[in-house]
Amino acid sequence: MRLLKKGAEGDIFLTKHENALAILKTRKKKQYRNQILDDRIRKSRTIRESTILSEAKEFGIRTPLVYQVNHNDCTILMQHIKGVVVRDLTGSKLVFACKEIGKITGTLHKNGIMHGDLTTSNFILSNGKVYTIDFGLSQRTAKIEDHAVDLRLFKEILNSAHVNVMKSLWSSFLQGYRSAVGHSRYNQILNHVSIIEGRGRYAQVV
């Protein structure tokens, strides 16, 4: 077992499952957090992530297969997706990936799920297909507000991590998103994104 990444929530290990490469996602106890709160967060996220990883497949979203879930240790053993994290892509591949992320987000929303952590580091481009690998903050919700929060976060990340190409990435994301949710829902959500942005600290609202 080899440590791949010390993530924000837990550690990601590369391991094997029945002779195939697999990923073990752990949510270790966080010593700095109150233990009751810590248990609540780790357990609920492990359960939610593992169910949504499987459920998302039903409406055609590519996710890793879940092999094993341990509710007590808060670990998920899943398929290893070989590819490049979208955050590390450049040029036309990055533009393509953003459009795909838009489609994926739209499909999730249409099926009443918000991703909750829509960043370019939570998607992998593998053989020309985009996989969604992290559902730790996902929620079942059909609220406009929640869906708009997803879009706003993605925009924030593009604005900070992919400054130079932000505009073209954002427009291809929106193109993909619109193709999944349809024109009227798209306008509704986009309008709500500006409302949320207007709530931001010291945002220019007038």
Binding site: K5, K6, A8, E9, R33, D38
Partner: peptide, 19 residues
């Protein structure tokens, strides 16, 4: 305090891991 600071802590950890 525990709840609010844990939230800030998590956001910070996410940003550290991302950047």
């Amino acid at each position: 305090q525990e709840t609010a600071f844990a939230m800030i802590g998590e956001a910070t950890e996410r940003a550290l891991s991302f950047t």
